[in-house]
Amino acid sequence: ADANTAYRNFFASLTGKRRGRRVGAPRFRSRRDNRQAIRFTRNARFAVTDGRMLRLPKIGDVKLAWSRDLPSEPSSVTIVKDASGRYFASFVVVTTDEPLPELDTEVGIDLGLSTFAVLSDGTVIESPRFFRRAERRLRRAQQNLSRKQKGSRNRAKARIEVAKAHARVSDARTDWAHKHSTTLIRENQAIYVEDLCVTGLARTRLAKSVHDAGWGMFTRMLEEKAARYGRVFGKVDRFFPSTQTCSDCGRVDGKKPLSVRTWTCPCGAVHDRDLNAARNILAAGRAERLNACGETVSLPA
C-alpha cells in the first residue's frame, strides 16, 4: 500500500497533476537505524480484546503496557521494534481536540545553552543536559562494543546495550520536552521564539551541546500543540537583533560576545542578556502578529 501511494504521487508529480514540490521516485528505506516495523489494517482483523490485549493475526494475543486509552476505534496498528530491542504498538485513531480557554498572557522565549530557556516574564528553565550526564556511561558501553569480535554473539549483545543507553537519553529528553512544552501551552495564549538555524549551529564547535539541547524538537512540539489547542505560536526572524536591542528604549547597541551576560544601555537601563532578548522576542512577535491582522503597530524609535 505504501509503495502504491509512493508511485502514484511520483507519477502525478511527473505529469503535473500533483501540486507542490516535485516528488522523487520511491527508494528502499535506509537500514541505518536497525528499526523494523509491520502494519496491520482492518482487513488483517487485528483487535483489542476485553482483557486489554492486542490480538494480531498469526501471532495471537500480545500483552501491552498501555500509555493511554484509545479515544476511538483504531483503523490500523503498527508494531515497531527499535534498535534496543523494544516493541511498540502505534494505533491510528480519530481524535477531536478541544481548544483551551483563552488567556491574556503571552510569552517570549530566548533559547540558550547555559540555561535551556529564559522567558520574558523572568522565568529561567535550566538545561537538563541529558547527554552530558550520561556521557560516561555511553562511552563505556561503546568501548565495550569496540572490543567485541565482529559477527560474534557478544558483539550483538554489546550493540543492544549501546542502543539501550542511547534510548534512555532520548526518552528522557523527549519526556522533558513534552512536559515543559505542555506547561507553556497551558499557561500562555501566545508563544514566540527565535527562528534559530539549528543545522548551522550543529556544524560549529558547540555541536554536541546544540544536539543535546534539542531546540528543534522543543519548538516543533510547541508549534504542534499550539495548533491543536487553539494557541498562537510565532517565530521571530533569526536576524532580528534581540540581544543588541534595549527592551526599554529600543536602541540597538551593537554586537556583544557571549561572555557579556549583562550590559548597560545609554538610557540607564541595566539588562540581563537573555532576559532582554526574551522581552524583545515577545515585542517582535506581537508586532508581526498585529501586522498580519492589518493593525497599526508603533515600536520604540
Rank of each mutant, 00 (worst) to 15 (best):
R132L: 09
A177L: 08
F91Q: 07
I109C: 06
N9L: 15
R155H: 06
P300F: 02
L145G: 05
P99N: 10
K150D: 12
N154T: 10
P300L: 01
R22K: 13
P128C: 11
G294C: 15
D195K: 08
A165M: 06
R32G: 06
G16I: 11
R39K: 04
T174V: 10
A278T: 12
D33M: 00
R35L: 03
S181R: 09
D50R: 12
W66V: 01
L299N: 07
K256P: 02
G200H: 01
A283F: 03
P99H: 13
V80E: 00
Q189C: 10
G60L: 02
K58E: 05
S75C: 05
A301C: 10
P300R: 02
T15R: 15
T204M: 02
N144E: 09
G230W: 10
R137H: 14
I281G: 03
V236Q: 01
G294W: 09
A1E: 07
V93N: 00
L14T: 14
A89Q: 03
K256R: 14
S90T: 13
I38L: 04
K164Q: 13
N188W: 03
V92N: 01
R27M: 03
A292Q: 11
A12P: 15
P101W: 02
Y192G: 05
S127G: 13
L138T: 00
N154M: 03
D97E: 12
T245K: 08
L145A: 06
A301M: 06
P71Y: 09
S75W: 03
I109N: 04
Q244N: 00
K148Q: 10
S146P: 01
D33V: 00
E224P: 04
P101D: 06
R203F: 00
R205Y: 01
E106L: 12
L113F: 12
E161S: 03
E224G: 04
V93C: 09
K179D: 14
L111T: 14
G250V: 14
G16W: 05
L196A: 01
I160G: 07
R186V: 11
M53T: 15
L54A: 14
T95A: 10
A301T: 14
A6S: 06
R39W: 01
K225P: 08
R228V: 12
C249Q: 06
K256Y: 04
Q142A: 10
T115H: 15
R22A: 15
I38T: 14
E73H: 09
T115G: 13
D104Q: 09
T262N: 14
E295G: 05
E223I: 13
R140T: 09
K225Q: 10
R19S: 07
R205V: 04
R55E: 06
